[in-house]
Protein backbone atom coordinates (compact mmCIF):
# COMPACT_ATOMS: atom_id res chain seq x y z
CA UNK A 1 0.00 0.00 0.00
CA UNK A 2 2.66 2.47 1.11
CA UNK A 3 5.27 1.63 -1.53
CA UNK A 4 2.82 1.63 -4.44
CA UNK A 5 1.26 4.85 -3.15
CA UNK A 6 4.64 6.57 -3.05
CA UNK A 7 5.43 5.39 -6.60
CA UNK A 8 2.18 7.00 -7.75
CA UNK A 9 2.93 10.24 -5.86
CA UNK A 10 6.26 10.38 -7.68
CA UNK A 11 4.45 9.89 -10.97
CA UNK A 12 1.95 12.64 -10.13
CA UNK A 13 4.76 15.11 -9.47
CA UNK A 14 6.35 14.37 -12.85
CA UNK A 15 2.95 14.44 -14.57
CA UNK A 16 2.20 17.82 -12.98
CA UNK A 17 5.54 19.18 -14.18
CA UNK A 18 4.67 18.03 -17.70
CA UNK A 19 1.25 19.68 -17.56
CA UNK A 20 2.76 23.01 -16.63
CA UNK A 21 4.54 22.96 -20.00
CA UNK A 22 1.15 23.94 -21.41
CA UNK A 23 2.21 27.51 -20.60
CA UNK A 24 5.07 27.31 -23.11
CA UNK A 25 2.70 26.89 -26.05
CA UNK A 26 1.76 24.21 -28.54
CA UNK A 27 5.19 23.43 -30.00
CA UNK A 28 6.86 22.91 -26.64
CA UNK A 29 3.99 20.84 -25.20
CA UNK A 30 3.61 18.55 -28.21
CA UNK A 31 7.37 18.18 -28.35
CA UNK A 32 7.32 17.11 -24.72
CA UNK A 33 4.54 14.58 -25.44
CA UNK A 34 6.59 13.25 -28.38
CA UNK A 35 9.79 12.97 -26.37
CA UNK A 36 8.00 10.95 -23.68
CA UNK A 37 7.87 8.29 -26.36
CA UNK A 38 11.48 8.61 -27.48
CA UNK A 39 12.70 8.42 -23.88
CA UNK A 40 15.59 5.99 -23.58
CA UNK A 41 16.17 5.69 -27.33
CA UNK A 42 18.18 4.17 -28.89
CA UNK A 43 18.59 1.73 -25.99
CA UNK A 44 14.83 1.25 -25.89
CA UNK A 45 12.48 1.04 -28.86
CA UNK A 46 10.05 3.87 -29.64
CA UNK A 47 7.59 4.19 -26.71
CA UNK A 48 9.66 1.59 -24.79
CA UNK A 49 10.49 3.84 -21.86
CA UNK A 50 6.90 5.02 -21.67
CA UNK A 51 5.62 1.45 -21.63
CA UNK A 52 7.98 0.52 -18.80
CA UNK A 53 6.54 3.40 -16.79
CA UNK A 54 3.01 2.38 -17.75
CA UNK A 55 3.58 -1.20 -16.62
CA UNK A 56 5.11 -0.05 -13.31
CA UNK A 57 2.14 2.25 -12.76
CA UNK A 58 -0.40 -0.40 -13.70
CA UNK A 59 1.18 -2.91 -11.31
CA UNK A 60 1.24 -0.19 -8.63
CA UNK A 61 -2.41 0.67 -9.13
CA UNK A 62 -3.51 -2.97 -9.04
CA UNK A 63 -1.37 -3.77 -5.99
CA UNK A 64 -2.63 -0.62 -4.27
CA UNK A 65 -6.25 -1.61 -4.91
CA UNK A 66 -5.64 -5.21 -3.82
CA UNK A 67 -4.01 -3.98 -0.58
CA UNK A 68 -6.90 -1.61 0.00
CA UNK A 69 -9.40 -4.44 -0.33
CA UNK A 70 -7.36 -6.62 2.04
CA UNK A 71 -7.24 -3.85 4.65
CA UNK A 72 -10.91 -3.11 4.15
CA UNK A 73 -11.85 -6.78 4.59
CA UNK A 74 -9.77 -7.04 7.78
CA UNK A 75 -11.26 -3.83 9.11
CA UNK A 76 -14.79 -5.08 8.42
CA UNK A 77 -14.07 -8.35 10.18
CA UNK A 78 -12.60 -6.59 13.22
CA UNK A 79 -15.39 -4.04 13.58
CA UNK A 80 -18.48 -5.91 12.46
CA UNK A 81 -18.46 -3.94 9.21
CA UNK A 82 -19.16 -0.63 10.95
CA UNK A 83 -15.66 0.80 11.47
CA UNK A 84 -15.55 3.89 13.67
CA UNK A 85 -19.35 4.00 13.81
CA UNK A 86 -19.69 0.73 15.71
CA UNK A 87 -20.84 2.29 18.99
CA UNK A 88 -24.44 3.04 19.85
CA UNK A 89 -23.45 6.47 21.08
CA UNK A 90 -23.53 9.02 18.28
CA UNK A 91 -21.59 11.68 20.18
CA UNK A 92 -18.10 10.87 18.93
CA UNK A 93 -18.80 9.70 15.40
CA UNK A 94 -15.94 11.84 14.10
CA UNK A 95 -13.51 10.37 16.60
CA UNK A 96 -11.26 12.37 18.86
CA UNK A 97 -8.67 13.82 16.50
CA UNK A 98 -8.90 12.09 13.14
CA UNK A 99 -8.68 14.16 9.96
CA UNK A 100 -11.41 14.48 7.35
CA UNK A 101 -8.94 12.95 4.89
CA UNK A 102 -8.73 9.76 6.91
CA UNK A 103 -12.52 9.32 6.54
CA UNK A 104 -12.40 9.66 2.77
CA UNK A 105 -9.58 7.25 1.92
CA UNK A 106 -11.79 4.43 0.63
CA UNK A 107 -14.50 6.33 -1.24
CA UNK A 108 -11.95 8.94 -2.31
CA UNK A 109 -9.89 6.08 -3.75
CA UNK A 110 -12.89 4.80 -5.70
CA UNK A 111 -13.55 8.33 -7.01
CA UNK A 112 -9.93 8.65 -8.12
CA UNK A 113 -9.99 5.22 -9.82
CA UNK A 114 -13.10 6.14 -11.82
CA UNK A 115 -11.56 9.47 -12.74
CA UNK A 116 -8.36 7.82 -13.97
CA UNK A 117 -10.36 5.64 -16.36
CA UNK A 118 -12.22 8.68 -17.72
CA UNK A 119 -8.99 10.69 -17.88
CA UNK A 120 -7.18 8.01 -19.91
CA UNK A 121 -10.13 7.69 -22.29
CA UNK A 122 -10.12 11.45 -22.73
CA UNK A 123 -6.52 12.48 -23.12
CA UNK A 124 -4.48 9.32 -23.69
CA UNK A 125 -6.51 7.05 -25.96
CA UNK A 126 -8.67 9.88 -27.33
CA UNK A 127 -11.74 7.62 -27.11
CA UNK A 128 -13.99 10.32 -25.72
CA UNK A 129 -13.24 13.80 -26.95
CA UNK A 130 -15.11 16.71 -25.47
CA UNK A 131 -13.98 19.73 -27.48
CA UNK A 132 -13.10 17.84 -30.64
CA UNK A 133 -10.60 15.34 -32.03
CA UNK A 134 -7.01 16.37 -32.70
CA UNK A 135 -3.67 14.65 -33.17
CA UNK A 136 -2.05 17.37 -31.09
CA UNK A 137 -2.03 16.68 -27.36
CA UNK A 138 -1.93 20.44 -26.83
CA UNK A 139 -5.04 21.13 -28.89
CA UNK A 140 -6.87 18.20 -27.28
CA UNK A 141 -6.06 19.44 -23.80
CA UNK A 142 -6.89 23.07 -24.45
CA UNK A 143 -10.12 22.28 -26.30
CA UNK A 144 -11.20 19.99 -23.49
CA UNK A 145 -10.54 22.48 -20.74
CA UNK A 146 -12.52 25.20 -22.52
CA UNK A 147 -15.65 23.27 -21.51
CA UNK A 148 -16.84 24.09 -18.00
CA UNK A 149 -18.01 20.59 -17.04
CA UNK A 150 -14.70 19.04 -18.05
CA UNK A 151 -12.90 21.47 -15.75
CA UNK A 152 -15.47 20.77 -13.03
CA UNK A 153 -14.89 17.00 -13.26
CA UNK A 154 -11.13 17.54 -13.05
CA UNK A 155 -11.60 19.82 -10.06
CA UNK A 156 -13.67 17.23 -8.18
CA UNK A 157 -11.11 14.52 -8.94
CA UNK A 158 -8.15 16.65 -7.90
CA UNK A 159 -9.77 17.62 -4.63
CA UNK A 160 -10.35 13.91 -4.01
CA UNK A 161 -6.67 13.27 -4.81
CA UNK A 162 -5.66 16.12 -2.50
CA UNK A 163 -7.53 14.62 0.44
CA UNK A 164 -6.26 11.14 -0.45
CA UNK A 165 -2.66 12.37 -0.45
CA UNK A 166 -3.10 14.40 2.74
CA UNK A 167 -3.66 11.22 4.71
CA UNK A 168 -2.06 8.74 2.32
CA UNK A 169 1.36 10.35 2.07
CA UNK A 170 1.67 10.63 5.84
CA UNK A 171 0.36 7.09 6.39
CA UNK A 172 2.71 5.64 3.78
CA UNK A 173 5.78 7.23 5.37
CA UNK A 174 4.67 6.27 8.88
CA UNK A 175 3.94 2.69 7.79
CA UNK A 176 7.41 2.45 6.33
CA UNK A 177 8.87 3.45 9.68
CA UNK A 178 9.55 7.17 9.24
CA UNK A 179 7.55 8.33 12.26
CA UNK A 180 10.07 8.17 15.08
CA UNK A 181 9.02 10.97 17.44
CA UNK A 182 6.22 13.44 18.16
CA UNK A 183 8.20 16.07 16.32
CA UNK A 184 8.66 13.82 13.33
CA UNK A 185 4.93 13.10 13.30
CA UNK A 186 4.21 16.84 13.05
CA UNK A 187 6.77 17.26 10.29
CA UNK A 188 5.49 14.30 8.27
CA UNK A 189 1.93 15.59 8.53
CA UNK A 190 3.05 19.05 7.40
CA UNK A 191 4.89 17.44 4.49
CA UNK A 192 1.78 15.48 3.54
CA UNK A 193 -0.30 18.67 3.53
CA UNK A 194 2.35 20.38 1.40
CA UNK A 195 2.48 17.52 -1.13
CA UNK A 196 -1.31 17.40 -1.32
CA UNK A 197 -1.60 21.17 -1.86
CA UNK A 198 1.23 21.33 -4.43
CA UNK A 199 -0.21 18.47 -6.48
CA UNK A 200 -3.81 19.69 -6.32
CA UNK A 201 -2.98 23.32 -7.14
CA UNK A 202 -0.30 22.40 -9.67
CA UNK A 203 -2.75 20.27 -11.63
CA UNK A 204 -5.60 22.78 -11.41
CA UNK A 205 -3.65 25.82 -12.65
CA UNK A 206 -3.55 24.80 -16.36
CA UNK A 207 -7.28 23.86 -16.69
CA UNK A 208 -8.42 27.09 -15.02
CA UNK A 209 -6.03 29.17 -17.09
CA UNK A 210 -7.54 27.59 -20.22
CA UNK A 211 -11.09 28.04 -18.95
CA UNK A 212 -10.56 31.74 -18.29
CA UNK A 213 -8.90 32.29 -21.65
CA UNK A 214 -5.27 32.51 -20.54
CA UNK A 215 -4.26 29.77 -22.98
CA UNK A 216 -5.94 29.23 -26.34
CA UNK A 217 -5.51 26.72 -29.10
Amino acid sequence: MAVTGLIMVLFLLVHMYGNLKLFYGQAEFDDYAYHLRTMGQPYLPYSGGLWIIRVVLLVSVLTHIASAFTLWARSRRATGGRGGGRYQSTRARRGVQRSYSSFTMRWGGVTIALFVVYHLLHLTTDTIHPGGVSSSAYVRTVNGFEIWWVVLSYTVALIAIGFHLRHGFWAALASLGANTSRRRRRHLNALAVAVAVVITVGFLVPPYTVLFGGITA
Binding site: R74, S99, S102, H167, S175, G177
Partner: peptide, 28 residues
Protein backbone atom coordinates in the same frame (compact mmCIF):
# COMPACT_ATOMS: atom_id res chain seq x y z
CA UNK B 1 -8.59 -10.97 13.71
CA UNK B 2 -7.43 -7.46 14.52
CA UNK B 3 -7.58 -5.01 11.63
CA UNK B 4 -4.66 -3.37 9.86
CA UNK B 5 -3.25 0.02 10.88
CA UNK B 6 -3.88 2.95 8.56
CA UNK B 7 -2.20 5.57 10.76
CA UNK B 8 -5.36 7.45 11.72
CA UNK B 9 -4.19 8.08 15.27
CA UNK B 10 -7.39 7.59 17.28
CA UNK B 11 -5.56 4.98 19.38
CA UNK B 12 -2.93 7.33 20.76
CA UNK B 13 -5.59 10.00 21.36
CA UNK B 14 -7.48 7.76 23.81
CA UNK B 15 -4.47 5.93 25.28
CA UNK B 16 -4.48 6.43 29.07
CA UNK B 17 -0.68 6.08 29.06
CA UNK B 18 -0.06 8.41 26.10
CA UNK B 19 1.69 5.72 24.08
CA UNK B 20 2.79 7.59 20.96
CA UNK B 21 2.01 6.64 17.38
CA UNK B 22 5.75 6.31 16.73
CA UNK B 23 5.74 2.84 18.34
CA UNK B 24 3.83 1.62 15.27
CA UNK B 25 6.57 2.91 12.95
CA UNK B 26 9.18 1.27 15.17
CA UNK B 27 7.24 -2.00 15.06
CA UNK B 28 7.03 -1.85 11.26
Amino acid sequence: GFGGCSQIGECTAVCPKDIQLEVISRCH
